[in-house]
Design a binder for these strands. Structure first.
Length: 887
RNA sequence: GCGCGAUUAGCUCAGUGGUAGAGCAAUGCCUUGACAUGGCAGAGGUCACAAGUUCAAAUCUUGUAUUGCGCACCA
């Protein structure tokens, strides 16, 4: 055996095993397998994306599930891929184009620009995939999909055509969320409202028929004043009732506009009079429809003012124009006051600028299968975990509006609609397009272009990225694959995309596969920094997982993050967690290294069977505990309690295996030990460790594979990751042995306490004297001494001098003769403190036992336990008092 | 305004009715043949507050406070 380094060095090991798994196709899913199928589709990261901690958490959980399912003998498909991410990707390439060539996408033209995006994708698109591999993800990489693969795209178009033919997709001029930077419409879900400090402008419009009289109006958006077509008041508002039906003067461009009454107006807000700009506000638009008002659009698509009648405002950016318009009002003497005001402003999720409500011609979808989707989640046909997210899902389902699916972008799935050339202009301008128009033969909808393509013009828009993502669970699979792996088993994703993705996938599953797309949805935590802030690039509080893996290893990162990731709440990330993961890997490595120092086993996958009659208590105890561990892990997995699983794995190795078992059997591995003792201990070590590595494998795949191989727990040429998890326990254990072990560990603890209390920890010549011990203890006194750090003398004839520090244990009374080693004064005050504490405990017990209600109604065993406890404490009290007197 | 969470040790969090737990940080001791990325020990909690149910409440109920998230409103 070669000299092993003292600390585990993960980098080379992780690389080695990952390539080895790939070479041997360990991640390959066979759709013709006889085994039970298990499948997960990855939430496809943006093709432009780079790995962040959210991905690490999410994909580690998926990897754990996948690896665990393989160990359970299932045929596992973890299907990976990436999303074309329309806006994000296009923006990135446009930026590069602007910076490097000073060109816009229009300078290149659609076709050339798309070529550039594909080039970019080929060059930079694989980064996150490489990073996932680095993390150890066991995806079937041969099946990697992209949402713009040809066959995938064809399915997106098919679905569009189907929904169009069913009358669920329509085109129309509606108020949409417009992003003035990306120059496209957005869905409601892509708008994030943020509280913003803004100003509320109070101004006055002169009444036409009574010059010199004014109506006061408040607004946050004076720059849209040119689009005002009315002023509305609440019909119940007594102040204004007599004004309804009269007219006021809009100052610029000058016009007379009516005062109307509408219930929407809040009497309490501002002056109670609302200027109506149907082109630039959703509510105003609706009021406009109700009152048949004109729509005057005074903004260009990019958010600059479009009002040639006001040359001083025309062409200005909307925020510049806001100040300018206010200044103009002031000049005209129409501005009354300006108040500071906090309101919510809708922001574009991608571009992070305020969106502009804008009327434009777009494609919309009436959501299909909404009823089934709501029921599936509410009734648990699809299990949301944690379950409370089902309510969020339900809320959204209750008030969904039609989905604006068209985007004014180039990168994406182009709308599969063609217009007959000579009619195109007319059709494109039409207020709506429905099935009837299509039947007229002027419009064609389908996945394949029309055969006489030259006569047709294609709709220029592309679809919302999520319109392709919602097909992901089945559009990524062939017929045969779907037969084996659809519906998928688990979906792991963030609760922030319940609306964007999860709910829509369920609708798509029902609509196009007549089935749910997945059985369970596990929602991960959101990762925040230690101060509770969201991770973001601009805050610089988002550590690069690759750096963390360089420093702590992928296994360390995985374990550290998973062990503390709470099920329901957010994770507060701290690098110290990852360091703990690394330390844990090191602890495991060193435990095995210790074993190897006693000789490398030549097992080649054959871990020796254990013979129960040869086991000493410590052996039996750890064998018993690995059995319990397996059972308890099963329970935690069943509830998707990944932090629990991690914690149990951690505690077993550290507290049980290393701190107790290894310390207890250390003597067996010394040169002075008998061959018998050594053999049993090594056999137990191997039996327990080989099983443990298997249990830990889903969390720390690399190191467990490495150690299993190095220790010979897996036959050479085979892999731990492919080894089925046995259901049987290693060996049936008689509880009297584990009880003995418990007693000895507890007793050793009491002895160490005594030593520490009397400050003799540093002395190596400590002697403990025991009386009233059971016979079997004599055999174990060497181990007890080892654990306690002192010599154990069993002397039933011993009569302790009054005041000798003592402890009552399961296995007799322990005395620690001090022989005048301690500082008398310090000892006195320590004892006094101790006595006070114990007196309190005794009184607590007395209080309970003196309570007749407790004694009468509590279960008998509870009362008995309380009595025993009182007895224990009062004995301790007497002992302490004696010690105090003896000093 | 509606909904969903959270509040336990200095910090991050476990803990679903029966003696308050872990890791980290801080303290003391230990470089003992696996590991200082380590070992042992001690200290540190009116479990946010109030009322209720119960023999018994961190845990169940109700209310309050603080705080986070989502939805709606947002002139």
């Amino acid at each position: 055996m070669s000299e092993l380094p003292k600390a585990y060095e993960p980098q080379e090991v992780e690389k080695k095993w990952y390539s080895s798994w790939l070479e041997n196709q360990c991640f390959h899913a066979d759709e013709s397998s006889e085994k039970e199928g298990y499948s997960i589709v990855i939430p496809p990261p943006n093709v432009t994306g780079i790995l962040h901690l959210g991905h690490v958490l999410n994909n580690t959980i998926q990897d754990i599930l996948a690896r665990r399912a393989r160990q359970q003998g299932k045929e596992v498909l973890w299907l990976p891929g990436t999303d074309h991410a329309g806006i994000a990707t296009q923006t990135k390439v446009e930026k590069q184009l602007r910076e490097e060539e000073g060109k816009t996408r229009r300078d290149l033209g659609r076709e050339e620009f798309l070529n550039r995006v594909w080039d970019w994708k080929d060059k930079h698109g694989g980064i996150i995939i490489k990073q996932l591999k680095r993390l150890g993800c066991s995806c079937d990489w041969e099946r990697e999909r992209f949402t713009m693969d040809a066959d995938y795209s064809a399915q997106v178009s098919d679905v569009f055509a189907k929904l169009f033919n069913d009358g669920l997709i329509y085109r129309g001029k509606r108020m949409v969320n417009w992003c003035p930077v990306s120059l496209t419409a957005l869905s409601d879900e892509e708008v994030i409202s943020k509280p913003r400090q803004s100003k509320l402008y109070f101004m006055k419009y002169e009444l036409v028929d009574t010059p010199g009289e004014y109506l006061e109006i408040s607004t946050t958006r004076p720059e849209t004043l040119m689009g005002d077509v009315a002023v509305a008041v609440n019909p119940k508002d007594e102040r204004y009732q007599k004004l309804v039906g009269r007219r006021v003067r809009r100052p610029f461009p000058a016009a007379e506009i009516p005062i109307i009454a509408d219930d929407h107006v809040d009497v309490e807000f501002g002056t109670g009079a609302l200027k109506i700009t149907p082109a630039h506000d959703k509510a105003d638009f609706e009021i406009g429809v109700r009152h048949d008002l004109e729509i005057i659009d005074v903004l260009h698509a990019d958010g600059t003012v479009n009002c040639p009648d006001c040359p001083d405002l025309d062409g200005l950016d909307r925020f510049v124009a806001r100040k300018k318009a206010a200044a103009k009002l002031e000049e005209l003497g129409l501005l009354i006051k300006v108040e500071e005001y906090e309101n919510n402003v809708g922001y574009s999720e991608r571009a992070d600028v305020p969106i502009e409500p804008r009327i434009s011609m777009q494609w919309f979808l009436k959501y299909p299968s909404t009823e089934k989707t709501a029921v599936a989640v509410a009734d648990g046909g699809i299990q949301y975990r944690p379950a409370r997210w089902a309510k969020t899902h339900a809320n959204w389902m209750e008030n969904i509006q039609d989905w604006c699916i068209s985007r004014q972008l180039w990168w994406g799935h182009q709308i599969p609609v063609w217009y007959r050339k000579e009619k195109a202009a007319e059709l494109l301008a039409a207020e709506s397009l429905d099935v009837a128009d299509m039947q007229a033969g002027d419009i064609y909808v389908g996945a394949e272009p029309p055969s006489d393509l030259a006569n047709w013009v294609r709709d220029e828009d592309v679809m919302d990225t999520w319109f392709s993502s919602w097909l992901w669970p089945f559009a990524t699979m062939s017929e045969a694959e779907q037969k084996k792996f659809y519906p998928t088993t688990d979906l792991v994703t963030g609760p922030d995309i319940i609306f964007f993705w999860v709910a829509r996938m369920i609708m798509a599953g029902f609509s196009f596969k007549s089935e749910i797309p997945f059985k369970n949805v596990f929602f991960t935590s959101i990762i925040r920094d230690i101060q509770g802030r969201k991770m973001s690039k601009s805050l610089g509080n988002s550590p690069d997982p690759i750096d963390l893996m360089d420093e702590y290893g992928a296994d360390g990162l995985r374990f550290g993050l998973l062990r503390t990731a709470p099920v329901g709440a957010d994770v507060r990330f701290d690098e110290a967690l990852v360091a703990e993961g690394r330390n844990f890997a090191n602890k495991l490595y060193n435990a095995c290294r210790f074993r190897q120092m006693a000789g490398s086993p030549a097992l080649d996958g054959q871990v020796p069977l254990l013979e129960v009659e040869r086991l000493r208590p410590y052996h039996a105890d750890i064998v018993h505990k690995i059995g319990s561990l397996a059972v308890n892990l099963e329970k935690s997995y069943a509830d998707y309690r990944f932090n629990d699983v991690g914690q149990q794995l951690y505690d077993f190795l550290w507290s049980e295996f290393c701190d107790k078992f290894l310390e207890a059997v250390k003597g067996d591995l010394r040169d002075s030990a008998t061959a018998e003792a050594r053999d049993v201990t090594l056999a137990v070590f191997d039996a327990v460790m080989s099983r443990y590595l298997q249990l830990l494998h889903p969390y720390m795949p690399h190191i467990t594979e490495e150690l299993s191989s190095r220790m010979g727990y897996v036959k050479s040429g085979e892999f731990l990751m492919e080894k089925p998890l046995p259901s049987e326990v290693l060996i049936e254990i008689d509880s009297h042995l584990t009880n003995q072990a418990d007693s000895i560990y507890a007793t050793a603890g009491r002895m160490r306490n005594l030593k520490a209390e009397y400050n003799v920890a540093a002395r190596k010549d400590v002697k403990f004297i025991m009386i009233k011990s059971p016979v079997w203890l004599a055999q174990e006194s060497d181990v007890l001494g080892l654990l306690a750090g002192g010599e154990i003398l069993i002397q039933d004839s011993y009569e302790a001098p009054k005041g000798t520090p003592a402890a009552v244990t399961d296995v007799g009374e322990v005395y620690l003769p001090l022989e005048g080693l301690v500082d008398i004064e310090a000892e006195k005050s320590r004892l006094d403190k101790e006595i006070t504490k114990v007196e309190i405990e005794v009184r607590k017990c007395d209080g309970k036992l003196g309570n007749s209600a407790f004694v009468d109604k509590a279960p008998v065993e509870l009362v008995e336990r309380e009595k025993a406890r009182r007895e224990e404490w009062s004995q301790k009290l007497v002992q302490l008092q004696e010690m105090r007197e003896a000093l």
